[in-house]
């Protein structure tokens, strides 16, 4: 490994040996963040979505080196079983986690939206999730789940 990548993953500072041509997706999975999924490796399906400096991005078309000194949030970093993130809880409550493969990316895209826009319209939710393919649910329920999580995150429910 020819260089050391300093990143903060889910709040923990890390020094990770990487090659300069390695994809961020591959490095994250190697480091044990298995919630980052590999569905197409061509920047389309969105299952590898993470938050890089609080922005949802597709880690399969970014080089790990691009993340130097950045903060990364993966699905593992946003909730626990006892205290799930409101979006995680909403996805469970709405019954919209089927095979689950798209869900980490979908939830992080939703988090990116709600962190910046606590009271989105349905169209804004649709736009925020437009980079995450799902073949199981038909999306409607997931859109509903994000809308349901919004007031919880605003502290209203």
């Amino acid at each position: 490994m020819s260089q050391i990548l300093h990143v903060i993953i889910n709040g923990t500072s890390k020094e990770i040996p990487i090659e300069p041509d390695e994809l961020l997706l591959d490095v994250l999975r190697r480091e044990g963040y298995k919630g980052v999924k590999r569905g197409c490796k061509e920047g389309t399906c969105g299952t590898c979505t993470i938050l890089l400096n609080d922005k949802a991005v597709k880690s399969c078309i970014l080089l790990a080196a691009q993340a130097k000194n950045c903060s990364i949030i993966t699905i593992e970093g946003i909730g626990t079983r006892d205290n799930p993130h409101p979006i995680q809880q909403a996805f469970v409550d709405e019954g919209v986690v089927q095979c689950g493969f798209c869900i980490p990316g979908m939830i992080l895209s939703a988090k990116n939206l709600l962190d910046n826009n606590p009271n989105p319209t349905k169209d804004e939710v649709k736009m925020a999730l437009d980079g995450n393919l799902c073949r199981c649910t038909g999306y409607s329920g997931q859109i509903k789940a994000v809308l349901a999580a919004a007031p919880v995150m605003r502290g209203e429910k």
């Binding site: 890089l52 949802a56 991005v57 597709k58 895209s109 736009m127 925020a128 437009d130 980079g131 995450n132």
Partner: peptide
């Protein structure tokens, strides 16, 4: 252009 996570990059 693209989709949301792509536009972010």
């Amino acid at each position: 252009i693209g989709d949301t996570p792509l536009r972010n990059a």
